[in-house]
Nucleic acid binder design. Sequence first.
DNA 1: GGTGCGCGTGAGTATTTGCCCATACGGCGA
DNA 2: TCGCCGTATGGGCAAATACTCACGCGCACC
Lengths: 319, 319
Amino acid sequence: MSLTPTIDATIDDQAARAAWLYYVGGLTQDQIASEMGLSRQRAQRLVSRAAAAGLIHVRLNHHLARCIGLEAALRERFGLVRCRVMPGLGPSRDPVRSIAPAAAEEMERVLAESGSRVIALGTGRALRGMVDALSPVEAPQHRLVSLLGNIALDGSASYFEVIMRLAEKVRAPHYPMPVPVLVDTVEENRTLQALGAVRKVRGLAQKADVTFVGVGQMSEDAPLMTDGFLTPDELHEIQRAGAAGEVAGWIYDGQGRYLDLSLNARLTGVRVEIATPERPVIGIAAGAAKIVALRAALTSGIINGLVTDEPTAAGILAG
Amino acid sequence: MSLTPTIDATIDDQAARAAWLYYVGGLTQDQIASEMGLSRQRAQRLVSRAAAAGLIHVRLNHHLARCIGLEAALRERFGLVRCRVMPGLGPSRDPVRSIAPAAAEEMERVLAESGSRVIALGTGRALRGMVDALSPVEAPQHRLVSLLGNIALDGSASYFEVIMRLAEKVRAPHYPMPVPVLVDTVEENRTLQALGAVRKVRGLAQKADVTFVGVGQMSEDAPLMTDGFLTPDELHEIQRAGAAGEVAGWIYDGQGRYLDLSLNARLTGVRVEIATPERPVIGIAAGAAKIVALRAALTSGIINGLVTDEPTAAGILAG
DNA sequence: GGTGCGCGTGAGTATTTGCCCATACGGCGA
DNA sequence: TCGCCGTATGGGCAAATACTCACGCGCACC
């Protein structure tokens, strides 16, 4: 066996080693360069590559007093099973950055269970951030199941694939919803629902032990619209019907009651029903635009767990 | 509730917030300063304070090819239940920095078990590093027990307290060994061993489900000597008797067989007997000086799990 | 009340890092 | 074979960061 420790096969190996020396060892990029026999620029590129590729995870080991206070208040007011409030990053930054590591910790807590669990998953940017922030763990004892598909009306797949990425990281059996989120007609939907594959996934999702979902707002920047599931006209009509938010595509009003919309008959996904302490539904969402949607979902108990950030938590409680 | 988000009570809160903005948010220290209403220097100090205090944890999300190879080789050669090899940090750096995060992950894996476990712990710098690198988790279902005390012959407590720190982080019931590691006479030892408290701790330690220990070398820089448990003369005598290493104070030879020393009768701690797959003993150690001690302990099966670094792993396998 | 000590602060400065650009390398089609 | 294009590389430079030092404040002790 060669004793030269610095020769690795792949570029990712090099990047990981450079990042290790940088972040864990505390070497400067110059030192890394000479240690690994590279130019400083290359060392710098490797470190930044590792950071960009998510090879290194940074976590804060301290609950801020203010965040703890908000957690306690939310827990009490809405009877939450789980609640995490992370510090905000200022208005100009994506709040997903802030909540993703905490959401990943919640997911890891579930994955660490030795008994077999069924874990249901929504879609969206926040969930995708959670998966990206997750440390790979072998957890083949669990089953992962989608609540809804990943394909828009026009056939395009969403960028924010969640279940496959997660399955890859934890090596668990997974059951994506193999149909578009929304179909054109009620008949089409009926046909799809009759498919064995769809029925199996639905059945599994409905008995999920724990569910992780994003929460969508129904304002002008509604993810349902920006992701191409609704036209602006449809959105406005639904807004007039009192829409406050949406979980896995199912739209509810300001009290968190699901709305009886014609759209519903064309939705293929599984509707998340009222969460229980034994089968919690964890909402992962943050941002000023989502405050109303979150408060409604918490009020009626569509979700009974929450990972959010400080300003969002304050906003929810202020209402 | 105040909506000014940047005023925190304690300095640690401030440090944690600054570090969060810096590491997770990616703000510059200038931006943090204006966000929190501080001078840039103060922001810098807060960030470095948080880093020094271990408020932030960095973990690498990638197994280097070379390390995986070493892990596989060690596993195969010594029949290990668990094995982690982390990249080395170069000869001038403390290898504990390198192995502590990986050891913490192993510990977290045990703590995440939902069933109640008895976790036995040795002492030493490596274990202390592991505890420092551990993320706080509530794990009150487990019991933590010391294999040996923390007090030297002269009554001074070791700097590397492990069990209390760990208990604090995980909020688990804990049973420190309430006596000095080594006593002056055999009679004293007999008296102490008769104490109910000691017998209870010994009993618990002997039925531990998993054990984490450091591994001490018996060369001139033996931790047993530098920590004040042995005089140089005693060390040399024991070296002549064939000492290769030590686990929890119990000294063994180059084949990992415990030596029959007069010293043994004055040791108060629990001797780690042969590990089994059901009740693994994980060794946490790295450094060129420890290679011989580790190889011996692995050979006889005193430990059947290992967390070490790359050069140490290569050295063990080279013998 | 003076004096010395320790701690925290801000200014200045050296080091380190991130980024841009010119250049070299290698594949590929004309 | 030549020229083109995409990619990777190292030099240089501006920004960001870490360190040092002198100062000021509070506090305890004299």
